[in-house]
Structure formats: C-alpha cells, structure tokens
C-alpha cells in the first residue's frame, strides 16, 4: 500500500472509531455549547472585539480537549500493532487530517453558537473562512504533534496544556489578527500577507512534525 492509500484507510478507521464511541465528539460539542452559554450569561452584550477574542479562546480550549485523546484513546500495545502494519508517517498524517476536520467542525459549531446568541460581527466572510480553515489546520498540526509527545509521558493531560499553549501562540496571534481584519477591527491590506505567513508557519510545523515523528513513536 502506498502512503496515500494508507492515509485514507486509517482515516476511515478514525471515523469508524469516532462513530462507535460517540461520547467523545458529543462531549466536545456539549463543551462548546455550554462555554458559549456561560459567555452569554456573563457578558450579555458582546462587542466585536470581545467576540473575536472569545471565539478563538473557545476554539483553543475545545481544540485541545478534542485533540488530546488522539494518541491515548487506544492502548499502547495496539498502537505498536498499527505501527507494524502501516507507515508511522501515515498514522501521524491521518490523525492530523482527521483532527483538522474535527476542529473545522468545532470551529463552525462555535461560530454558529456564538452568532446565534450574540450576532455575527463578521463582515468579510471569505477571509473569516480562510482564517478558520488555516487555523484548524494549524491547531491540528501543532496539537496532534504535541499530543504525540505528551502521550509518551504518564501525566499527559497536564503536559499537553503546558507544552501546547506556548507553542501554539504564534498561530493563535496570527489567527486573531486575521479574523480581526475580517470583522473590520483592523484596517490595511495585509490580509494576504498574514494568510501567507500563517500558511508558512503551518508548513514549517508540518514538515518538522513529519521529520521528527519517526523518532517519537518507537518505544
């Protein structure tokens, strides 16, 4: 099997697994909804600036909770079995791809929920969608790789937070900047430059993840 086939096959496996244990994904959705509800109760009126920041904070925490289980939901022995069967790189990439889709879904849900209770301040929908897309990809790459590191340690959920928050900040700040543009908080014509920069950071992290992962999975 070549890499592409392996990835599609493993992706199917991830979806099946998710579909069988619905509690994980429904837990995340419930998490997003209840956070948005708490935000509404505590703020009542949300300014566009606040909306922008709150959106990405909800997104950040939901993403970490969603991704943290990538490498721990299945036992270590079964993981080792997978690594024998498939290319480890295919396993990493399929997990990144799956998480990117999951995070995109979470992002859309957060957007809908936040817009439902507080209205949507987004003026430039295309740019916002771009930010959401590249943001999901960036979060997915970073968090998946960090969760692979954290899964090797014993107290992995604490370690996940410690390792991933500082590492994700460049991506997060680019995203907040980009979506502030699409909301109309920031003027200027640097949107395409910001998107390019986000893409560059995503690609660097992806390349690094692919180079370093072979050293990570072995036990």
């Amino acid at each position: 099997m070549n890499l592409l086939q392996e990835i599609t096959f493993l992706l199917k496996k991830e979806f099946t697994l998710e579909w069988r244990q619905k509690y994980a994904i429904s837990g995340i959705f419930l998490y997003v909804l209840s956070t948005v509800f708490i935000i509404f109760i505590s703020f009542q009126k949300i300014s566009p600036q606040l909306w922008n920041v709150l959106f990405w904070i909800v997104m950040l925490f939901a993403s970490i909770n969603a991704v943290v289980k990538s490498f721990v939901q299945e036992s270590g022995n079964r993981q080792l079995y997978y690594y024998q069967l498939a290319n480890p790189l295919a396993i990493l990439l399929s997990k990144m791809l799956y998480n990117a889709m999951l995070l995109l879904l979470i992002g859309v849900l957060t957007f809908v929920a936040l817009s439902f209770i507080a209205g949507s301040p987004v003026e430039d929908a295309y740019n916002f969608a771009m930010a959401l897309f590249f943001g999901s990809v960036g979060f997915s790459i970073t968090f998946t790789f960090v969760s692979a590191i954290a899964a090797k340690a014993d107290n992995n959920s604490t370690l996940m937070a410690i390792l991933s928050f500082p590492v994700v900040i460049p991506v997060l700040l680019l995203l907040v900047n980009l979506s502030a543009h699409s909301i109309g908080l920031l003027g200027g014509t640097q949107v395409s430059r910001d998107i390019m920069m986000l893409l560059a950071v995503d690609l660097v992290l992806l390349a690094l993840g692919m180079v370093l992962f072979p050293f990570l999975w072995r036990d």
Partner: peptide, 26 residues
C-alpha cells in the same frame, strides 16, 4: 532523551515565528 530532543527541535522552530514574525505584525 529521545522525546526531549524531539521537543527541543520543535521548540526552536516555534521560537523563530514567535520572536521574528509576530512582532512585525502589530
């Protein structure tokens, strides 16, 4: 040793955008 070597390389790669890309934006 193995895991922290991996993290060290990853950390340096995120340090560059942190100190040289982000400050140029704002």
């Amino acid at each position: 040793a193995r895991i922290s070597a991996v993290y060290n390389i990853f950390a340096f790669a995120t340090l560059i955008p942190l100190l040289y890309v982000v400050p140029k934006l704002t």
